[in-house]
Simulated assay, not measured.
Amino acid sequence: MYPDVELDASGVPKQPMSSAVVAAVKTFIDFFRKATPLEAMAAVGEFIAKSEALMYAQLHEEMWQTKVRE
């Protein structure tokens, strides 16, 4: 499920990231620096909801694939 990326002691990938990833991380951090507490909580809540929906969809797909093979 997770990519195999070697991390250093600080949890930073040893392999360089693309410029798109660097820009996305900076944008994410900038948003939280400027966001009100309510905006930040809403963004985190939306992220968690989407993550749970994605995990559910992946689980459903795996279960369906298992049934098809049987």
Rank of each mutant, 00 (worst) to 15 (best):
E46L: 10
M17P: 00
E6R: 12
S10T: 07
E52T: 05
V22E: 15
M55V: 06
A57H: 00
A9R: 11
E52F: 04
D30V: 03
Q65W: 05
G11S: 08
V5S: 02
A24L: 10
A42L: 15
A57Q: 07
A43Y: 03
I48T: 07
Y56V: 09
V68L: 15
L38A: 15
L7F: 05
A35E: 01
A40Y: 04
M17W: 10
Q65I: 07
P16L: 08
E39M: 14
Q65Y: 06
E70H: 11
E62D: 09
G11R: 03
S19A: 14
F32S: 05
S10R: 12
W64S: 05
Y56L: 13
V68K: 10
Y2E: 15
S51F: 03
D8G: 02
A40S: 13
A40M: 08
R33N: 13
R69H: 01
A24M: 12
P3L: 03
T66C: 00
G45N: 14
G45K: 10
F32Q: 06
E61S: 11
A49I: 06
L7K: 06
A24T: 10
P37L: 05
V5A: 03
V22I: 12
L54A: 14
L59K: 11
M41H: 06
K34H: 08
A53G: 12
K34E: 12
L54Y: 10
E61F: 11
